[in-house]
């Protein structure tokens, strides 16, 4: 009995570890390649661990080749930061307000409205792309970081509203009721009852929006000029042209992935909660 059990357990661990390898080996390849020197990169040794370890490719990926006027992804990375921070902050504020209204101040038709808002989360963005470009052009925000921020805030409304609404649904109505009896108005209740309880909600939404906006590509490639180009576009451009050297491409991939990976490592618990909140209603 005991023996059979341990055998099963060994099998379970074996399978789990095998899948861990499936998830990790692309990452291994990225590290192994990006820390190689140019001279050491060749197809026949692509899976070998680099020796010596070199940061050459990271410098190239970040700076490009200035002497040939080829841009690295450094500028794109900074653009992404400039885009993602304000977009995330505004998303959080809007989502929190919407969630507050839709959970604690329902009105006739608010459920229908909520469903209509939610639909916006699922649409393929190709279906709004052309009018979006022309609209941004008409308000002079096309090909700017501000334009990208606006777009990400607007199309982030459904998911942020959903997460906050579900989050606030867990706050007992009695608390709101009690505050109202004390004479608190809409804003007072928000500030003194909901907001203090909201920190985890804000963290979840902020992480979610941060990763989504950072990783987004379609808007980034369509609504960006060279100057406002986010990191994902810079990386994709690098792959297609000058840098056929794989170590530079992989270094670039690692640089672009670093912020979201970092967030994931540091705040993984909340990240998971954001994912699940995005996945499941109510």
């Amino acid at each position: 009995m005991i023996r059979r059990l341990t055998l099963t357990r060994a099998l379970v661990y074996g399978v789990l570890l095998a899948f861990a390898i499936y998830y990790l080996f692309p990452l291994y390849l990225v590290f192994a390649t990006s820390f190689k020197r140019f001279a050491d990169v060749s197809l026949s040794t692509m899976w070998d661990w680099p020796s010596p370890i070199s940061l050459e490719s990271f410098a190239q990926a970040w700076n490009g080749r200035p002497e040939a006027n080829i841009r690295g992804i450094g500028d794109g990375f900074l653009n992404s930061v400039r885009m993602v921070v304000p977009a995330t902050v505004i998303s959080c504020i809007l989502g929190s307000l919407n969630g507050y209204v839709l959970s604690k101040w329902r009105f006739r038709g608010s459920e229908t409205l909520f469903t209509l808002i939610l639909f916006g989360m699922f649409i393929p963005y190709q279906s709004i792309l052309i009018p979006l470009v022309r609209f941004l052009q008409s308000i002079q925000l096309y090909a700017t970081i501000s334009g990208l921020v606006l777009v990400h805030v607007v199309y982030g409304i459904p998911i942020t509203t959903l997460i906050f609404r579900n989050y606030y649904a867990g706050v007992p109505n009695e608390l709101v009721e009690a505050a109202r009896i004390d004479g608190a108005n809409f804003f007072r209740i928000y500030r003194s009852v909901l907001l203090p309880l909201s920190i985890p909600g804000f963290v979840v939404v902020a992480i979610w929006q941060f990763t989504q906006i950072w990783n987004e590509y379609l808007f980034a490639v369509v609504i960006s000029s060279t100057r406002a180009q986010p990191a994902t576009v810079a990386l994709q451009n690098m792959g297609g042209g000058q840098f056929t050297e794989y170590n530079v491409q992989m270094a670039g991939a690692l640089i672009v992935a670093a912020p979201t990976l970092l967030v994931y490592v540091l705040l993984g618990r909340y990240f998971l909660r954001g994912l699940l909140a995005g996945a499941m209603k109510g």
């Binding site: 006027n69 080829i70 841009r71 470009v133 022309r134 941004l136 052009q137 002079q140 096309y142 090909a143 490639v221 369509v222 609504i223 000029s225 060279t226 100057r227 451009n237 690098m238 792959g239 297609g240 042209g241 000058q242």
Partner: peptide
């Protein structure tokens, strides 16, 4: 400013260029 978009005979670049021209940029 060297605005380049990679990709062979400019297939991707032309896409970006049209977006920019139509977008008034």
């Amino acid at each position: 400013i060297n605005a380049t978009v990679a990709g062979g005979a400019g297939t991707d670049a032309k896409a970006v260029l049209k977006t920019r021209m139509l977008g008034g940029d």
